[in-house]
Design a protein around this nucleic acid. Structure first.
Lengths: 229, 229
DNA sequence: GAGTACGAAATCGTATACGAAGGGTAGGCA
DNA sequence: TGCCTACCCTTCGTATACGATTTCGTACTC
């Protein structure tokens, strides 16, 4: 079946069924088909993907290791929720690793990268008018990806990706709750680009990138505190 | 054997077979039964542990996610090696996350913790006389564990544990190669304790903890460069 | 003598099957 | 009427079995 229908299908058809299952489930979590709290039943997913439960099981375990799903023995897996505490920890960790990754990749960033990042940021600025949180968040990720993707330390880069993945599961980004943060964010992006352009000290870049993210977290916390005192 | 003899056996018998397999394989990697480069054959391990290949497979995948083993499709898993580059990346990442974890846990560290850490450090100081790299390394881990273990951010703490685990796979620690680093390390430990005692700024503690580890890395790199120019 | 091609052994990947543990519901008893 | 218990159903956990893929050894040819 796999060969017949999907010949040179798409990137998802690559490799083992486990990988396919992983890709498929991840996509569904990120795009919201499986909302937070949704129960992931192995047999159902397996049937859905046209494979056996074994590869699905492996995929779920991998997702568990990455924190996108929680797992309970003999009970099953559920899509990890948007627990505010969880959010805090994830953002805190991400600020740390992304800050470092950005600093490490800064010396390797060329003019083309800078231009691309700036273009994305300008798009974000334009987006401020008729504000669309989802679009803004997507652009935000794209912007930062340009900045950290050249990080030479693969472990660190992997941690950054995991952090973003976890955040992706709550699609209704921070900016939905705290739209006021969006404008400041765009300005800080420009400042970050300047630092990289002028080959600033690694420490300085790391601090800037880290506090940029921390500020978003703080804005969210302040908002959450106002809403649920 | 597992069911008949071991009723409330021991901690290793807890939970699923997958967890048992994970614990067993991890232990063998850390204690050197499976040296770096050793090929992990599923069927052999399964037979050895008295279980089927499925749980073993899951355990291996988990170890892969943690970086203790490398995996190749349709080929198998091998215990991850001591590639100097890998070491650099791991230490770099560890310095980052451990520094942050130490800073975050500092306010939660009580006098008892300080006393224990200091006792361990004194033991390390005594150990400097008839130097034993393995013992020194074990004490070193114990010392740092006291300092970061109270970190309230579980993700971050998990990353620190993973980092240490990966380093544990190369038991012949840095201090074997660079014994001169040991004395400086003990002194820096004392400085770190002082900072925590006097409730220093979080940034300051983070910087101190990070550069402590970075210094160890640098010492190793300098040594490696001397040896293999 | 070296390189290549073919075949066999080893090992992984996945499917299917069965036993076990949890949760929900219905029925009975206080 | 409310709570407790027993049963059943759903879903997971593991074993076994078979097909797929890779690798190593050997023989043949240039």
């Amino acid at each position: 079946m796999t060969e017949v229908a999907g010949t040179a299908r798409d990137a998802a058809t690559e490799g083992s069924k486990s990988q396919q299952a992983y890709a498929a489930v991840t996509a569904r979590i990120v795009d919201g088909t499986y909302p937070p709290g949704h129960r992931l039943v192995l047999a159902a997913i397996a049937h859905d993907l046209g494979v056996s439960v074994v590869p699905v099981r492996e995929a779920i375990r991998r997702l568990e290791a990455e924190g996108l799903v929680t797992f309970q023995r003999n009970v099953g897996a559920t899509v990890a929720g948007i627990d505010p505490t969880e959010y805090l920890y994830t953002m805190q960790t991400l600020s740390l690793v992304e800050g470092a990754a950005t600093a490490l990749s800064a010396p390797l960033i060329g003019v083309a990268d800078i231009a691309r990042a700036r273009a994305v940021n300008e798009e974000m600025r334009a987006c401020l008018q008729h504000f669309d949180p989802l679009r803004f968040t997507r652009l935000n990720q794209e912007f930062h990806a340009v900045l950290f993707e050249r990080c030479p330390n693969p472990h660190l880069l992997d941690l950054v990706h995991r952090g973003w993945n976890r955040l992706a599961s709550l699609r209704s980004s921070t900016f939905r709750f705290v739209p006021g943060r969006a404008r400041a964010s765009v300005e800080e992006h420009e400042g970050l680009l300047r630092l990289i352009e002028e080959s600033a000290d690694a420490d300085e870049i790391e601090r800037a990138a880290r506090s940029h993210r921390s500020a978003t977290l703080d804005a969210y916390l302040a908002h959450a505190h106002d809403t649920h005192p």
